[in-house]
Design a protein around this nucleic acid. Structure first.
Length: 718
DNA sequence: GGGTTAACCTTTTTT
DNA sequence: AGGTTAACCC
């Protein structure tokens, strides 16, 4: 077999990973070292060289995006589709297992998935059922408590009785919540993983079967696995131990939601004889950027040890800008992006990164003013919008009548005369008889315990759902969605509402029909299209904004930037209390995670990296004075150029500029009048950088201020 | 049943 | 501040 087409694309270390013998393998892959490449080529290697059937490969990632990308790249190398290969997120694969073995897993056949929003509602309901006050038991913390235990694999029964009364009460809520989930045939995200784990742990037959089936396991972003995911992997790896994991301890930024970096260390212990390989050559960033990032991450203790290097040249220095306030910071960033675009680059090559999503607003305002197209990642996503969740609730109730949260959501949406009083009666009946609302409603109608009017309204709702279920059965998915939207009155309800928001809602609902149409086309399993669609909606909430083809500036949090790269990166809001975040300052562990986050941010940059902070920042409606982030101090000074706007230039640079620097600045001074062939006459506002990278900001009489690279601009001093 | 007001909360995010 | 949600009134 000629494997040159595989090997040609890889360096030495990557090759040894890709072509390693079967058995446990741990690849410590630094940022930009070709991690995804190694994974994809490993699969290609197994299939083409080792003649492994794609059917016996299981590849796991954390995000749907990563899974899709990997599948695409593998198919690109192989030249044919590998539909039979199990490849997806932990949650997606767990879901698939549970659908196939719902009985063994102790679930109802039509079980539905709770997203975190739904979960919070159900927590609230559990509190209500126990007569607990939300003020004293914040639903968010309860949700947190439940998820943390599930992620560690602990059921309520497995948690030892605590001396602490509060702990005992939390446990009682956890128990109630679980009962409700079971009664309503609902499974939350953590539960998907836990059930799938318990399924293979307790069911020997199934365990054997899947160990036989999955001869080769591959895991991406291994540092992000939590306890239960890791245990599940260990079970599946079985005696064959063909498990290939790739990760980077320096990029572990999800410990706050249960990820365990320690799994990397544990791996070698649990799989004796593990081959450990390091990928340390970076193909992404310039030497300077890499050196700066390395210097920062060096301040962390307890690293596995790894030092990225690059064959690339040093490139440009980092640039640091101290803004007066957050608005000034945003203006500076947008100004620099404008120059970048003026120099013939793409807007989409520029990324603005921040610690918390709230910071995006100021940037959006300034970008909007500048008329520069942008795209914000994060925020409300398609399947999380209220109107979409309404529509989905109808579809879910059609699929599973026990789904109480869906029932509650739409029983009076749009309003159909079923008020709180009626509902309270139904709820009470359901509580006493421990049934779902649906059955309770039926019983109440038949036992004539409701007023005539209520019974009639409720009966109409019941009939509607039943009719929607039977009448649309067998129809193509998109048509089913369409009919439901029409006959439920949802579409009409939003149509008669006025305002831009309502219009957007109608559009979204129409888009949902479209989504159904597209989904129908590439449905892979034989099962019920509607059920798969609902699972898809829960597991893959979709993007915040539809895929835009327009060339856009990219705005996102540091967390969502992981795995991406951009030629031009702005790391903004580098201030103590914001980044590192206030709530991370107490614990050293948290602080190290913040530093890793900083490292992740810096290593996104390929050619230019700006770090900015504001002296004054408006946050939660209050203005506060800030001090620069400690991380800024951890970047070696000689790698950074300080940028000052206006006439306040750093003395050293000013002197250099005044003296003609190393001849580069052409004796140009601040305030000099200059002439440019295209832009005409203007005044020099600032000078920055050294050598071939010297740039000047010129305020032109026509066309405003522009940043120009001195070496190319051909400016004449007047 | 719909609209208005008061209270609340606020890290990061995927699933 | 801003946005959401729960409580409240017509």
């Amino acid at each position: 077999m000629d494997v040159s087409h595989i090997f040609e694309q890889l360096n030495e270390a990557q090759r040894s990973a890709v072509a390693s013998e079967p058995g446990p393998l741990l690849v410590l892959a630094g940022a930009g070292s070709g991690k995804t490449r190694v994974l994809t080529y490993r699969v290609a290697w197994l299939v083409q060289v080792r003649n492994v059937s794609p059917l016996s490969i299981l590849a796991v990632t954390f995000t749907n995006k990563a899974a899709q990308e990997m599948r695409g790249r593998i198919e690109g190398i192989l030249g044919y589709p590998v539909g039979g290969m199990w490849m997806g997120t932990f949650h997606g694969i767990a879901h698939r297992l549970l659908r196939a073995h719902w009985r063994e897993a102790g679930l109802a056949q039509g079980f539905q998935i709770l997203d975190s929003d739904d979960q919070l509602r159900l927590v609230r309901r559990s509190l209500k059922q126990l007569n607990l006050d939300e003020g004293f038991w914040p639903p968010k913390s309860v949700q947190w408590f439940i998820n943390a235990h599930k992620e560690e694999g602990r059921r309520p029964e497995g948690i030892p009785e605590s001396q602490d009364a509060q702990q005992r009460e939390l446990l009682r809520i956890y128990k109630t919540y679980e009962e409700l989930c079971q009664r309503f045939a609902l499974v939350d995200f953590a539960e998907l993983l836990l059930r799938a784990f318990e399924l293979v742990k307790h069911n020997e037959l199934l365990r054997d079967r899947y160990q036989q089936r999955f001869r080769h396991l591959l895991v991406d972003e291994f540092q992000d696995t939590n306890a239960i995911q890791y245990e599940w992997l260990r079970l599946l790896a079985g005696q064959q131990r063909n498990i290939f994991v790739v990760g980077d301890d320096d990029q572990s930024i999800y410990a706050w939601r249960g990820a365990r970096v320690e799994n990397i260390l544990q791996f070698e212990k649990d799989f004796p004889g593990t081959t450990v390989l390091r990928l340390e050559q970076n193909y992404r960033s310039s030497g300077t950027i890499l050196e700066a990032a390395n210097a920062v991450i060096d301040h962390n203790r307890g690293r596995l040890g790894k030092r990225l290097w690059t064959a690339d040249e040093a490139g440009e220095p980092l640039r640091r800008y101290a803004a007066y306030n957050d608005i000034d910071e945003a203006r500076f960033v947008v100004d620099r992006i404008q120059s970048w675009v003026d120099a013939g680059n793409l807007r989409s090559e520029a990324a603005v990164l921040y610690r918390s999503n709230a910071q995006s607003r100021v940037f959006e305002e300034v970008l909007l003013n500048a008329g520069m197209p942008y795209r914000v990642y994060g925020g409300l996503r398609f399947f999380e919008r209220a109107e979409i969740k309404d529509a989905l609730a109808y579809l879910r109730l059609i699929t599973s009548r026990q789904d109480d949260p869906s029932f509650e959501r739409i029983v009076n949406m749009p309003t159909r005369g079923i008020g709180n009083k009626t509902l309270d009666q139904v709820r009470e009946h359901a509580r006493i008889n421990q049934t779902a609302l649906w059955e309770s409603a039926l019983a109440q109608i038949h036992s004539h315990q409701l007023t005539k009017r209520s019974a009639l309204a409720l009966g109409k709702f019941i009939d509607l759902i039943n009719a929607l279920a039977t009448d649309t059965q067998g129809l193509p998915l998109a048509d089913r969605v369409d009919v439901v939207l029409q006959r439920s009155g949802l579409l009409q309800h939003y149509r008669k509402e006025k305002g831009e928001k309502a219009e957007a809602r109608v559009e979204n609902l129409e888009e949902l029909i479209n989504a159904g149409r597209n989904f129908d086309h590439d449905i892979d399993d034989d099962g019920d299209a509607l059920a798969s669609f609902l699972a898809h909606a829960a597991l893959e909430a979709g993007d915040a904004q539809a895929e835009e083809w327009e060339d856009c500036v990219q705005l996102m949090s540091l967390h969502s930037a992981k795995g991406l790269e951009f030629p031009l990166v702005f790391l903004t809001g580098m201030e103590e209390g914001l980044f590192p975040h206030q709530r991370s300052l107490q614990e050293p562990g948290r602080l190290e995670e913040e530093r890793r986050l900083c490292y992740v941010g810096m290593t996104r940059a390929m050619r230019q990296l700006y770090v900015t902070h504001a002296e004054v920042r408006r946050l939660h409606g209050r203005e506060s004075y800030t001090s620069p982030s400690r991380f800024l101090g951890e970047i070696p000074k000689q790698l950074v150029d300080e940028v000052r706007s206006g006439f306040t230039l750093r003395p050293a640079v000013e002197a250099e500029a005044a003296a003609g620097g190393s001849g580069d600045a052409d004796g140009m001074r601040l305030g000099d009048r200059v002439h440019h062939r295209k832009f005409g006459d203007g005044v020099v506002l600032s000078i920055e950088g050294r050598g071939q990278y010297t740039r000047v900001q010129v305020n032109f009489e026509t066309g405003g201020s522009k940043w120009l690279v001195l070496a190319y601009a051909n400016l004449d001093v007047l």
